[in-house]
């Protein structure tokens, strides 16, 4: 590649223009995991019980592990020398490719459980299929993550059933949390030319194909938990284009502060 072309590509990357599709795809998956990991870790010292705090922290760490592998992979495929830290801590929020669902504030425990149920059920379908990716790195990440995510989903189901079919108060709280996060689930299954093209080449999974299985699994849990499935209607999106809710900025301030203040800090 000529120097000029290299400079152009570099300029394009920093100018938030189109990145290579496989880099973009790895960032979508990695950013989802990164942001939800940060959200869940906010429960540390604040969970309803010490035991539950450990459970949420374990899930957050699993997601962070997925994010590290995926961001490292994205950086290598991009070829501009950005490592996992550069991608996690030095991108502005408009360059984040996560879905809006994961950046919503955790709210109370009911909302955290509702969000984890919707997201982990999606991730389980995604990773189960992605194990067959023609990209060996994505296939390897998926093969490891699918077991982790199965546990995340089981944990979310366990609490969805107990809160939903628990006391009047717990039912009210998780129903409210579910009503709040439900509209954001639609974005998980959005397809676009980029992902369809990658899917045709066997690299990616077109998420629109996961919706039916996800719907069946999630609705069954909600029914058993005596919860009402919210109506589909308003379906906000834009996360994959870098158009985020106001909440991501606050999350970023906390997540990126240390690295930006002390570049390269380690301990």
């Amino acid at each position: 590649m000529s120097t000029l072309a290299g400079a152009e590509r570099r300029g394009a990357a920093s100018g938030r223009e189109a990145m290579p599709p496989d880099v973009e795809y790895a960032l979508r998956l990695g950013d989802d995991a990164l942001v939800l990991s940060q959200r869940l870790s906010e429960w540390i010292t604040r969970a309803p019980a010490l035991e539950e705090e450990m459970a949420l922290a374990n899930i957050a760490l699993d997601l962070l592990g997925q994010a590290r592998a995926l961001l490292t992979h994205a950086g290598e495929r991009e070829g501009h020398g950005r490592d996992e830290d550069a991608l996690a801590f030095l991108r502005p929020e408009r360059e984040l490719r996560n879905c809006l669902l994961v950046e919503l504030p955790g709210g109370d425990f009911g909302r955290t459980v509702a969000r984890l149920l919707l997201f982990s059920a999606y991730q389980l379908e995604l990773y189960a299929s992605l194990q067959l990716s023609t990209d060996p790195m994505l296939a390897a990440v998926a093969a490891r993550a699918v077991k982790e995510v199965a546990y995340h989903r089981n944990h979310a189901i366990l609490w969805t059933l107990r809160l939903g079919d628990g006391t009047e108060e717990s039912h009210r709280r998780i129903q409210r949390g579910l009503d709040e996060v439900w509209p954001y689930a639609a974005e998980l299954f959005e397809s676009d030319p980029l992902v369809r093209d990658l899917a045709r080449r066997g690299v990616a999974i077109d998420p629109s194909g996961l919706r039916a299985t996800w719907d069946g699994a999630v609705r069954a849990v909600l029914a058993e938990a005596t919860l009402t499935v919210p109506d589909d209607g308003w379906a906000p999106s834009g996360g994959r284009l870098g158009l985020h809710t106001e909440h991501l900025g606050y999350l970023f301030a906390e997540m990126q502060h240390l690295h930006r203040s002390h570049p390269g800090a380690s301990w």
Partner: peptide, 22 residues
């Protein structure tokens, strides 16, 4: 929705009503 832990309000929105059951 209520602010989450990073939104300034760490407590569930109606923390006064949390049952002591836990």
């Amino acid at each position: 929705a209520p602010a989450g832990p990073s939104g300034g309000s760490d407590l569930p929105p109606e923390s006064g009503t949390v049952s002591p059951a836990r």
